Simulated assay, not measured.
Amino acid sequence: MEKKYDLNNLVEMKKAHPCGTNQFQIVRMGADIKIRCTNCDRTIMMPRRDFDKRLKKVII
């Protein structure tokens, strides 16, 4: 099963950010994916493989 996501999608991750939310917006895609926390606007960059493992669902 392949999960479909694209730039600027809101996604829900399995683990919450330290600020308390688990919703992020995808801001950059490539070999690495950069996501921004919707609560505190901090960014996280991770390899696509790790992102696919940690993704729970695509919201929008």
Rank of each mutant, 00 (worst) to 15 (best):
L7S: 08
G30I: 11
R42P: 00
I33N: 10
R28M: 07
R54T: 15
M29C: 04
I35C: 06
C19M: 03
D52H: 11
D50L: 05
I26F: 02
M45S: 10
G20C: 07
K56A: 15
R28W: 04
I60R: 06
P47F: 07
A16M: 08
D41L: 03
D32I: 00
P47W: 07
Q23G: 05
M1G: 14
C37P: 01
A16K: 13
Y5S: 07
T43E: 15
I60A: 05
R42Q: 14
H17Q: 03
C37A: 06
E2H: 05
G30F: 07
T43L: 08
K14D: 15
R28G: 03
D50P: 00
R49E: 08
D50C: 05
M46Q: 12
M29R: 09
G20P: 02
N9M: 08
L10Y: 05
R36M: 10
D41Y: 01
K15H: 06
E2N: 10
I33R: 06
D41N: 11
Y5D: 08
I33C: 07
T38L: 15
T43W: 03
F51W: 04
L55F: 11
G20L: 02
K34W: 07
N9W: 00
A31W: 08
I60K: 12
L7I: 11
A31F: 14
T38W: 00
Y5F: 15
K3W: 12
K4G: 07
D6H: 09
K4L: 09
K14I: 12
H17L: 03
N22A: 10
D6I: 01
R54C: 14
C37H: 03
G20T: 02
P47S: 11
A16N: 06
Q23H: 12
N22Q: 15
R54Q: 14
R49L: 03
M1Q: 10
R48Y: 00
Y5C: 02
E12G: 09
